[in-house]
Design a protein around this nucleic acid. Structure first.
Lengths: 136, 136
DNA sequence: GTAGATGCAAAGTATTTGCGACAAG
DNA sequence: CTTGTCGCAAATACTTTGCATCTAC
């Protein structure tokens, strides 16, 4: 498996333009889940001539190439994160908007089992938990 | 618990207009998960003067009143269904778009447990499985 | 009677696209 | 070179809103 986005692009035959390199770099360094606007802001600081249309086109391309994951959390714009080994789901703090990533093997298994039960082969899934912090 | 949408409206102090009655009726009778456009089509057959703005306002109001559930499945418009006792999740056939509802107690419990583990109290969640039919 | 609902068209968001200029392989 | 990409602005898709009118309670 290639380790970084640029290598993944090469592996998938995606042409590596200057703009794509910048977007790839920003996404690699982002520990959060930026939406296109936010990504555009970050990208603009490095090259202010990049247009938002290119950012939209690039995240879409990266998503289709399996490089980025797109999330459509409640009531908002689409948000992106780098797709790495090891699937995880999201727990969203409804007060602060903070997003916690978690992995739970048991729940993954259970999902496969359910799809199976209905005669389906699971190709994708989405699990989002929305919660409020408990008082200690 | 009131059994139908009109009773729920009364119970929640939602004014029962002619338009809302029609929308409520259509939603009650719908076994699928129509989007606003589709709902507007169905509603128009009964009263062609109802505007799409009213449909949008009404589904939003009904959602806030806990009468309808809003779903934002992949890559599309928001879709609605009547909210009844007994939570269920969705298994979506990615080929045909068919939606299967399912209930799984085990997965519900597991979700609470995960939220708990991170110090959160679960207020909402979204689980969608996307699958393709298995060959028999 | 009055607060709230409706219809209409116009305004907002988020995202996509046509097109001529330009750059990667 | 040639194919695909970029930037721009205009277009689209879905949803919300201002306002004058109307209706449920």
């Amino acid at each position: 498996m290639p380790e970084n986005i640029e290598q993944k692009c090469l592996a998938k035959g995606v042409k590596l333009t200057e703009q794509r390199k910048i977007i790839a770099k920003i996404m690699s360094e982002s520990k959060d889940h930026p939406d296109v606007d936010e990504l555009y802001n970050r990208v603009s600081k490095i090259d202010s001539k990049i247009s938002i249309a290119t950012v939209y086109r690039t995240v879409k391309l990266f998503e289709e190439s399996g490089i980025l994951a797109k999330h459509e959390f409640k009531g908002g714009k689409a948000r992106y994160e780098e797709l790495n080994e090891g699937h995880h789901d999201h727990l969203i703090d409804v007060k602060s908007g903070e997003i916690i990533e978690f992995v739970d093997e048991e729940i993954e298994k259970l999902q496969k089992k359910i799809a199976d039960k209905y005669g389906y082969h699971l190709v994708d899934h989405k699990l989002e938990l929305y919660g409020v912090k408990k008082k200690t």
